[in-house]
């Protein structure tokens, strides 16, 4: 891998992250309701007090560069401000508390969806036009058209409210005390099944459709014809010649999707009341907790940019043609 390719990709990633920070800065200064704009309505607030408030919040300084520099500086130090809703806790802590449940849920769901989706796509693409392709591809298209909550709500109705196999919401039973780690794990697993199924199903469609078209393209390549001419069995050609080459675009999609692991399935978390970043986003949205929203936006933006960066690097590594 050439150093120039690496340098160009890194420069682009850093530029994009800086743009996200700038956007974060500008967006939240467009909002109504800063201290000096609210106070004038109160006749008891004197001009001096208003000036003091402005000075205290740094609002008497020019927006650019002083306020911007201060903002970027504290953002880089991990100071994202304080939540309005959660008793003034630091945003970083509020977000940190919700981080692991989301990573656990979406990480597992991605794993399942990648394996099943790519396998389904490879099989349907290889048998393009056949019965298995029609059913498999139709299923993928339907799943691809379903938002997470459209998958999750029926699952609750059938398996939680109807059959009573799984709990309807949460990550652990409220107020439960566990005799050992085994019981804890069992409780976690019972709560995990339905949201996990929801997100996996929601992701399978995209992977399958991508892999199907990729395999179809690969099937027309000369080296597949060569392999066939050599008399290799069909399954062997698929496994050792078609799939490794067709995986290339899939690798990119996987890397990009991993960027969304952090905040990906907001609506799935809502449906199951999963205590992750998705429910936090909506809580912050409903109570207009802007510092938290800002923090989530930053976190997600940065992870998506990093994931894209990784995708570019991996792709450049796997396919020498894109490096120039």
């Amino acid at each position: 891998m050439s150093a120039r390719y690496l340098a160009r990709q890194s420069a682009q990633a850093i530029f994009t992250i800086l743009m996200i920070v700038l956007l974060n800065f500008l967006l939240f200064r467009m909002m109504p309701g800063s201290p000096d704009r609210v106070n004038p309505r109160n006749p008891n607030v004197t001009a001096e007090q208003r000036e003091a408030a402005k000075a205290r919040w740094g609002l008497d300084q020019p927006l650019i560069p002083d306020q911007l520099v201060a903002f970027v500086g504290s953002t880089l130090q991990g100071d994202l401000g304080y939540s309005m809703k959660f008793q003034g806790q630091p945003v970083l802590k509020v977000i940190g508390d919700r981080f692991m449940p989301t990573v656990l849920l979406i990480g597992l769901a991605e794993l399942i969806a990648i394996v099943l989706g790519l396998a389904l796509g490879a099989y349907t693409g290889w048998r393009r036009g056949g019965m298995a392709d029609r059913i498999g591809n139709g299923l993928s298209l339907i799943l691809y058209s379903m938002p997470y909550f459209v998958i999750g709500m029926p699952l609750i109705i059938i398996f939680a409210a109807g059959l009573g196999w799984f709990p309807t919401s949460g990550m652990l039973t409220a107020g439960a005390s566990y005799a050992g780690p085994g019981q804890f794990l069992a409780d976690l697993l019972a709560h995990l099944v339905l949201p996990l199924a929801t997100i996996s199903l929601g992701l399978i469609g995209g992977y399958s459709i991508l892999m199907r078209s990729s395999i179809t393209e690969t099937r027309a390549e000369d080296y597949i014809a060569t392999a066939r001419a050599k008399g290799l069995p069909d399954g062997k050609i698929l496994r050792s010649h078609a799939i490794p080459n067709a995986l290339l675009p899939a690798v990119t999609l996987i890397a990009i999707n991993l960027g969304y692991v952090v905040g990906g399935a907001i609506t799935a978390e809502i449906v199951f009341n999963w205590p992750g970043l998705g429910t936090l986003t909506v809580d912050a949205l409903n109570s207009r907790d802007y510092p938290v929203l800002q923090g989530i936006f930053l976190l997600l933006g940065v992870s998506v940019v990093l994931a894209n960066f990784v995708a570019d690097i991996v792709y450049g590594y796997l396919d020498p043609r894109v490096r120039q």
Binding site: T16, L27, L293, I296, F297, L300, G301, V304, N308
Partner: peptide, 22 residues
């Protein structure tokens, strides 16, 4: 490229209440 990389859905969530408040 910036808008392509940006998590549009989250941007939409952040933008909507701000515009609405304005």
């Amino acid at each position: 490229d910036f808008f392509l990389v940006l998590p549009t859905f989250v941007l939409a969530i952040v933008l909507a209440p701000i515009i609405l408040d304005i």
